[in-house]
Amino acid sequence: MIRFGILATAVVTSLLMLINPVSANDELLARLTLPKGYELNYFAKNVENARQLAVSSSGVVYVGSRKAGKVYALIDHNQDGVADRQIVLAQGLNMPSGLAFNQGDLYVAEVHRIIRFKNIDKQLTKPTFEVVFDKLPTARHHGWKFIRFADNGELLVPVGVPCNVCAEDEKYGRIFSLNLESKKLTTIAQGVRNSVGFDINPQSGALWFSDNGRDMMGDDIPPDEINRVSFDGEHFGFPYVHGGSVLDPEFGKGKTLADMQKYTAPKLALQAHVAPLGIHFYRGKQFAKVMHNRLFVAEHGSWNRSEKVGYRVMMATIKEGEITAYEPFISGFLDKEQTLGRPVAFAELADGSLLVSDDFANAIYRVRYNNK
C-alpha cells in the first residue's frame, strides 16, 4: 500500500490586497465553542469559497476554492497568527478545490486536470502555471478534488461519481495514485462515491479517507463514512452497499449478507448527510498531549435533510486501527436551522496551531491551545 510522507486558456491574474482587519468581537466567533483551553481566531476573512489548504515551508498558506474558481496565497508577515495579505494566484479555473505541495511547487487539482505553479513562494506577484496532467474526467458533478502526495512521489487524486448513485466505469468512484512522469493512474481504493478528504495515520502508515453517502433515501440512511485502506484496490461497496450495512434499493437488488461482506465496511459509520470532507491527523506539539494523533473531521453539513445535521468539526480517537471515540471539537456553525459556517479542510502551521477553512463564511480559522 502506498504511504504518504506527504499557459492554459484561462486568463490568469494576480491581485495583491489587504485583508480586512479581524474583529475580536465577531458574532460568529462568539458562537463557536471548543474544548476547555482552546481558542479560535480568524487567520483570514474574505477568502471566497475557501476549500483545501496547503502550507509552504516559508509559512505561506495556499487556499483552493470550488465555486469561486480561484487559488489564493495568504501571508502573515509579522507572524501574529493573522494573515495580513492575500494574493489571487489564478482565477477562472474549473473548481480548483484541491492543493498539494511538493519540492517547492504548488499543485492544483481542477475537475479535469492537474496544474503546477513552480517555485511558487518566489513567484507570488507574477504567478504562472503549467498543465502536468489533463486526462481526468470532465464531469463536474462530484468532480472537485482533494489531493496529496505519497512518499513515493506519486499524487493521490480522487474522482467522485458523476451522479447521486450509478454504476460507472473505472474512471469514477475511486482514489487513484498518479505517477506524474509516466502519467499512469493506479487504483488505491474503489467503490468510493465521493471522497473529498484523506490523510495518513502517522503511527501506522495507513491511508484514511472520508466518503459522502448517497442522497434520496430519507433523513437517516445511508451513513456517511470514515474508511481505512488496507491494500491497493480495496472495494468499499458503492453503489451496491452503503455504510457497510445498507443495500442500495436499485444496485443492491438480489445481493445477500454474504455479498455485503465482500466489501469493506467503514471504520466509522457517521450520521447520514453530515457530509464529512477534510480529515486530518494532528501531528503538531502545540495542542495538549492527548490530542496528538487525533483525527479531525470536518462535517460540512447536510443540504437535503428535513432537519440539518453536521456543521461542526469532530475528533476521532484511534487505537490499534479502530475508532474508539468520536467527539465534538468545534461546534456552533449551525443555529437551529440557520447556517453560519461550513467547515471544509485542515492544515497545521509551524507552531502547531490548526487552520480550518470554511467555504460558507469565506474564512480561515486558527485554533491554538492556551493551557493557562
Results as ranks from 00 to 15, higher is better:
Asn212Cys: 06
Asn212Ser: 00
Asn212Lys: 15
Asn212Phe: 04
Gly213Gln: 05
Arg214Gly: 08
Arg214Tyr: 02
Arg214His: 06
Arg214Ala: 15
Asp215His: 08
Asp215Trp: 05
Met216Phe: 09
Met216Ser: 13
Gly218Met: 10
Gly218Leu: 13
Asp219Pro: 03
Asp219Lys: 04
Asp219Ala: 13
Asp220Asn: 15
Asp220Gln: 14
Ile221Phe: 01
Pro222Phe: 02
Pro222Arg: 00
Pro223Gly: 13
Pro223Glu: 14
Pro223Leu: 02
Pro223Met: 09
Asp224Lys: 01
Asp224Met: 02
Glu225Ala: 15
Glu225Leu: 10
Glu225Gly: 00
Ile226Trp: 00
Ile226Val: 07
Ile226Gln: 01
Asn227Asp: 03
Asn227Met: 03
Asn227Ile: 10
Arg228Lys: 14
Arg228Trp: 00
Val229Asp: 10
Val229Ala: 09
Phe231Val: 08
Phe231Thr: 06
Asp232Met: 11
Gly233Pro: 11
Gly233Asn: 11
Gly233Gln: 05
Glu234Gln: 15
Glu234Phe: 11
Glu234Ser: 10
Glu234Lys: 13
Gly237Trp: 00
Gly237Cys: 10
Gly237Met: 08
Gly237Val: 14
Gly237His: 00
Phe238Gln: 10
Phe238Cys: 02
Pro239Arg: 09
Pro239Lys: 12
Pro239Glu: 05
Tyr240Gln: 09
Val241Asn: 03
Val241Tyr: 01
Val241Lys: 07
His242Val: 15
His242Thr: 11
His242Ala: 15
His242Gln: 13
His242Tyr: 04
His242Ser: 06
Gly243Met: 07
Gly244Arg: 09
Ser245Asp: 08
Ser245Pro: 00
Ser245Ala: 15
Val246Arg: 15
Val246Ser: 09
Val246Glu: 05
Leu247Ser: 09
Asp248Val: 14
Asp248Thr: 13
Pro249Ser: 15
Pro249Glu: 12
Pro249Trp: 11
Glu250His: 05
Glu250Trp: 02
Phe251Trp: 01
Gly252Met: 15
Lys253Cys: 14
Gly254Phe: 05
Gly254Asn: 08
Gly254Trp: 07
Gly254Leu: 07
Lys255Thr: 04
Lys255Asp: 05
Thr256Gln: 07
Thr256Glu: 00
Leu257Met: 06
Ala258Met: 08
Ala258Asn: 06
Ala258Arg: 12
Asp259Pro: 01
Asp259His: 12
Asp259Glu: 10
Asp259Tyr: 12
Met260Cys: 03
Met260Arg: 12
Gln261His: 07
Gln261Glu: 11
Gln261Phe: 03
Lys262Pro: 01
Lys262Asp: 05
Tyr263Met: 10
Tyr263Lys: 12
Tyr263Asp: 05
Tyr263His: 03
Tyr263Gly: 02
Thr264Pro: 00
Ala265Leu: 13
Ala265Tyr: 07
Ala265Ile: 09
Ala265Asp: 03
Ala265Ser: 08
Pro266Phe: 03
Pro266Leu: 08
Pro266Asp: 02
Lys267Met: 11
Lys267Gln: 10
Lys267Val: 05
Lys267Asp: 04
Leu268Cys: 07
Leu268Asn: 01
Leu270Trp: 01
Leu270Ala: 06
Leu270Tyr: 02
Gln271His: 11
Gln271Gly: 02
Gln271Asp: 06
Gln271Arg: 13
Ala272Asp: 03
His273Tyr: 04
Val274Cys: 08
Val274Lys: 12
